Every structure is written in structure tokens, then in C-alpha cells.
Amino acid sequence: MTKKPPGSSDVSISDLVERVSLEIRRMGAHSVMMSQVIADRFGLHTTDLECLDLINMRGKTTAGELAQATGLTSGAMTALLDRLERAGYITRVHDSADRRRITIQVREEAIEPIKTVYAPIGERMGALWSSFTADELKTIAQFLERSTDLGVVCIEQIRKETASKPVSRRRPRVNRRAIT
């Protein structure tokens, strides 16, 4: 017998978990597509746009912290930050207490055009989210935070597994005779 959630007689927990899984995947796919459209508009790589957002959310960060949060290698992170710096979106600042430590910060004036594109989306999402109760929003926030934290752990695990196992980058061979 499948466990039913409290107050529900026709939907099982496993059915709801499956629904949540599918909706998270759908949201993730659409988020990637939106990022690509906006990144294209500003001549950025999608990963660059998302890392720029992470830097903006953190206020300031280091390359190492950002690499750890994203799962990118230090070399890939350096190249990404070089691109963002050349484009004028970020600055690297020497820490006044430790000159060897460099923090990365967004240049607010440079990201204003990007914020302008996201503003109407944020307003519409804010209106939607405001239709939920405070308790529902607390649950949603907890769900998203815990899911994201677990995702970061999974990224690190996959990265470690990938480093220990060489992966073939070849595409599967297509049997053209079978295609008619």
C-alpha cells in the first residue's frame, strides 16, 4: 500500500514526489532556456551569466568559492572571470587585510541593462508568489534551499567521479541503414 499525504485520499506521496520531480525538471529546463536567450542578448555564455548572478547574489566572492559552488575547475573559472572582467561586468579587488586574497564583485552600472531585462519577469513572479500563504512560502523556500544544497553536493560528487573515470566524448554511432 502506498502512503497517502495527510488530508488526501486520492494522491499518494510517491505520486506527489514524482510530480514535484517532473515540475523541477521542467522549471530547470525552462530556466536554462531563459538564461540562454538573455545571455545571447548580451553576448555572454550562459554559464557566464549564471555565475555573474551568483556573484551578484553573494555581493563579493572569491574565484575558489565560486568554483566550489558551481563545480567548475579552477582553470574554467579563471577563463570565465577573465571574460566577465574584459566585458566590464566584474572587478577583481585585492583584500585590504591580505593582499594575496582577491575578491570578485559585480560592477553595478554594468549589470543594470541585464537587471532591466529581468525586472518584468521578477515582478510577475513576485505577484504569483505573493498569492501563497506565509506558511506555504516558508515550505517552498525550505524545499528550494535544501534541494539546491543537495544539488551542490551532487555536483561535487559527479565531478570527483568524473575525475577518476575518463569519459569518452564520442557520439554514439548511428546505423544509417536502419533509418529509412
Rank of each mutant, 00 (worst) to 15 (best):
I104D: 10
L137P: 02
E109A: 09
L137N: 10
T139R: 12
R146G: 05
D135S: 04
E109T: 08
S131E: 07
Y118Q: 01
G122K: 01
K115M: 13
I114P: 05
Q142D: 09
E108R: 14
A127I: 00
A127M: 02
L128E: 03
F132P: 00
T116C: 03
A134Q: 06
R107P: 08
A110V: 09
Y118W: 05
K138Y: 06
G126M: 02
I111S: 12
G126E: 06
R124K: 06
T116P: 03
I140Y: 07
T103W: 12
T139A: 15
K115Y: 06
D135G: 03
M125G: 01
I111K: 14
D135I: 04
I102R: 14
T116R: 09
E136L: 07
R124T: 00
E109Q: 09
S130F: 01
F132M: 11
G126S: 10
I140A: 15
R107H: 13
K115V: 10
T139C: 11
Q142E: 10
A141H: 05
A119G: 02
V106D: 06
R124C: 00
D135M: 06
G126W: 00
R146L: 07
K138S: 05
T103Q: 13
G122I: 00
I104V: 15
K115H: 11
V117P: 13
G126Q: 05
P113W: 13
E123V: 03
I121L: 04
G122V: 01
R146E: 11
A127Y: 00
G122H: 03
D135W: 02
T116F: 04
A110D: 08
I121V: 09
E112C: 03
S131H: 05
F132W: 09
I114H: 04
E112M: 14
T116K: 13
I121F: 01
R107K: 15
E136G: 08
Y118E: 02
F143Q: 11
E123I: 01
T139H: 08
M125Y: 09
T139S: 13
E112I: 12
Q142C: 08
F132H: 08
P113E: 12
A134M: 05
M125A: 12
I121E: 00
A134V: 13
V117F: 11
W129H: 05
I111H: 10
R124V: 00
K138I: 07
L144W: 07
T103G: 10
A119L: 04
I104S: 13
L128C: 02
D135Q: 06
W129D: 03
E108V: 10
L144C: 14
L128M: 05
A119Y: 03
M125S: 04
I111C: 14
Y118C: 03
K138Q: 12
Q142N: 07
M125N: 07
Y118L: 08
Q142S: 10
L144N: 12
E108N: 14
T139M: 11
F143K: 06
I114Q: 02
Q142T: 10
K115S: 08
P120R: 01
A134H: 07
S130Q: 11
K115D: 08
I111M: 14
A119H: 03
E112A: 13
I121K: 00
V106P: 06
